[in-house]
């Protein structure tokens, strides 16, 4: 084997360019990385302020478990509400199930709009409209789910084999019956996997949106953070970690069963 020296030179040139860009960006952000990282006092501060997690907060604050339930409820309601709209949107947006080509284009455009608007801006507007609380977050999650999974559903419906639906058409089944008995049963595994995935994502997002003022576990985190109870923040972060991981495991398990 030859050692391609030209390749090596190209690689080092690439690395150097990367480093230059990185340095440029950091300089632009007024960061002196060497100073920051090698002073070490920042990280020392972090460890002193945050460790160890004060797990006592788990039983001292009676509202905490309620906030966990609230976060789960936000994620669940947001997911189901979003999916309840995503399924018809997917049916209207898939070439093989849409009632009309024009409707398909309109739905696809609408869904891409929902994906483009960052959920954060939607939340901001909704928070002002509906007041602080989980309502705004739930609607935000539902809109995000609709945009992302409506498209995904449309794509999985289009990937289905066309032959069975055609066979049903040939024996006199209506369009809706073809969808109900040939298209949906074939797409079911993809749709269920997608739904579980949506819940995974929305649980994470529900915690994040809570930090923006939507209530639940995120609100507890923000409260602890704002009152400088950093040891509590770490404990609550661990709670979110366990929650997210547990839900992920459950949905992995369910996914493998189908």
């Amino acid at each position: 084997m030859m050692w391609p020296s030209q390749n090596a030179r190209r690689m080092w040139a690439t690395v150097a360019t990367f480093a230059a860009f990185l340095g440029g960006f950091l300089a632009y952000l007024n960061v002196e990385p060497v100073a920051v990282l090698f002073q070490g006092q920042h990280l020392q501060n972090l460890f002193r302020d945050v460790f160890p997690p004060r797990l006592a907060v788990l039983w001292e604050r009676s509202g905490l478990w309620w906030s966990v339930v609230e976060t789960l409820a936000m994620a669940f309601a947001g997911t189901t509400l979003g999916l309840a709209f995503a399924l018809p949107a997917g049916l209207a947006g898939a070439a093989n199930t849409t009632p009309h080509g024009g409707l398909r284009a309109a739905v696809r455009f609408q869904l891409s709009l929902e994906r483009a608007l960052s959920s954060f801006f939607i939340l901001m507007v909704l928070l002002i409209a509906f007041g602080l609380g989980p309502f705004a977050a739930t609607v935000t999650l539902a809109l995000g789910t609709l945009g992302g999974f409506g498209k995904l559903f449309a794509e999985s419906l289009e990937r289905v084999e066309a032959a069975p639906a055609e066979a049903l058409a040939a024996l006199g089944a209506s369009r809706s019956q073809q969808i109900c008995f040939a298209v949906l049963p074939q797409a079911a595994p993809a749709l269920i996997t997608g739904s579980l995935y949506a819940f995974d994502i929305n649980l994470r997002a529900a915690i994040a949106l809570g930090i923006f003022g939507a209530g639940g576990l995120g609100a507890e985190l923000l409260l602890a953070y704002n009152t400088l109870r950093y040891h509590d923040v770490l404990a609550l972060a661990l709670v979110s970690l366990v929650l997210v991981t547990a839900v992920e495991r459950v949905s992995d398990f369910l996914r493998q069963r189908i």
């Binding site: 084999e161 032959a163 069975p164 055609e166 066979a167 058409a169 040939a170 024996l171 006199g172 089944a173 209506s174 008995f181 040939a182 049963p185 074939q186 079911a188 595994p189």
Partner: peptide
């Protein structure tokens, strides 16, 4: 059309069945 079609039994090749049912 549906009324006419339901009087005709079409036997396609096997892949026209819904495999998951």
């Amino acid at each position: 059309l549906r009324a006419a079609r339901r009087q005709m039994g079409v036997i396609f090749q096997g892949l026209h069945l819904v495999k998951r049912m």
